[in-house]
């Protein structure tokens, strides 16, 4: 029986896997192709402007820069499949090592922002749905419209201005690793993570509100009330879960938005994260690093989609694959 169940799962998962592989191949190709078009020679970036013709030729040979484009893409891609993302032109470090080093910062920011955004949006979404068109609902509708219209970097500047400069207590720039002490780490992460989270809260809370309002009209909510269950329990235990499917999808999709936000926030707050790595390596034409980071982000995006699917199954027993 478990074998048959495994069979169904495979039949469901295999096309999805094939599609994901195609997407990733395409992303790698696109990144390589785009950077190949870029003007400038990475050898100069590596050797400096005074490099001799021989030095440059030697570098080209070492980096396979004279090979045709497709050959280089093939070499790179076959490396990627084996887990080798190449080495940075600039630092000579393995790409994965610098990605891993930067990931600590960006990963923490993204996870903190996601957790914070959900922690704020879920109660807001539930309560504005509970008292839809009430005073709080209308006030929040106004505030969230304002937040939606505020670009993340303006929000970051505003927060930095108010919380770091005026109120004080939070550092406006720089980073402290977890190893330097959790307190210092969280204090440095607070402002950038809050910026990222605030950009998500309006869409999250609105999405949840709309779905909650629909759920609260349903019979099983009325039935729960007719049994005298407490309002809070009905809202958070009975109505929230069937209302959260769209929010889960949105959360999965917003990984991309978060990374985009992280690019801006990391530059603004001078944080050594992936976003900053992207900006510096793109401007320096450090092709392997850009390819590596883009590839990594694409994998994260696809993984987020898969996690969303699994979460769906956890949230809604009706979509679970069950042996019957």
């Amino acid at each position: 029986m478990s074998g048959r169940r495994g069979g169904t799962v495979l039949r469901l998962v295999l096309p999805q896997l094939a599609r994901t592989a195609a997407v990733l191949l395409l992303v790698g190709f696109g990144a390589a192709f785009l950077l190949d078009l870029a003007p400038g020679d990475p050898a100069f970036a590596l050797l400096g402007e005074q490099a001799t013709a021989e030095q440059i030729a030697a570098t080209h040979r070492a980096l396979h820069l004279d090979d045709p484009f497709l050959t280089r893409y093939w070499t790179w891609m076959s490396g990627v499949v084996r887990g080798d993302f190449g080495t940075s032109y600039l630092t000579g470090e393995p790409v994965m090592a610098s990605v891993a080093a930067r990931l600590e910062v960006t990963g923490e920011l993204v996870l903190l922002a996601l957790a914070g955004a959900l922690a704020v949006s879920v109660p807001i979404g539930v309560l504005t749905a509970h008292r839809a068109d009430g005073r709080a609902d209308r006030a929040w509708s106004l505030v969230s419209s304002g937040l939606i219209a505020t670009p993340p970097f303006v929000l970051a500047l505003f927060l930095a201005y108010v919380l770091a400069l005026k109120v004080g207590g939070l550092p406006a720039t720089g980073w402290a690793a977890w190893a330097d002490g959790p307190g210092a780490n969280l204090r440095h992460a607070a402002l950038p993570a809050a910026t990222l989270a605030l950009a998500l809260v309006p869409t999250y809370s609105r999405m949840l509100r709309a779905d909650m309002i629909a759920t609260l009209q349903e019979d099983h909510i009325l039935a729960a009330r007719s049994r005298g269950l407490p309002v809070r329990r009905i809202l958070f235990r009975h109505a929230l879960r069937p209302s959260s499917f769209s929010l889960v999808t949105l959360t999965g999709i917003s990984i991309g938005q978060l990374i985009s936000g992280a690019v801006v926030v990391e530059v603004l707050f001078a944080l050594p994260g992936l976003g900053q790595l992207v900006v510096t390596s793109v401007t320096a034409k450090d092709v392997p690093v850009v390819q590596g980071v883009v590839m990594f982000l694409a994998v994260v995006y696809c993984a987020a989609g898969a996690v969303t699917d699994v979460l769906y199954g956890c949230l809604d027993p009706r979509v679970r694959v069950r042996p019957t």
């Binding site: 349903e218 019979d219 099983h220 009325l222 039935a223 729960a224 879960r241 069937p242 809604d316 027993p317």
Partner: peptide, 8 residues
């Protein structure tokens, strides 16, 4: 069909 919580 609708009077029971579908996910519990």
């Amino acid at each position: 069909a609708t009077a029971l919580n579908p996910v519990t």
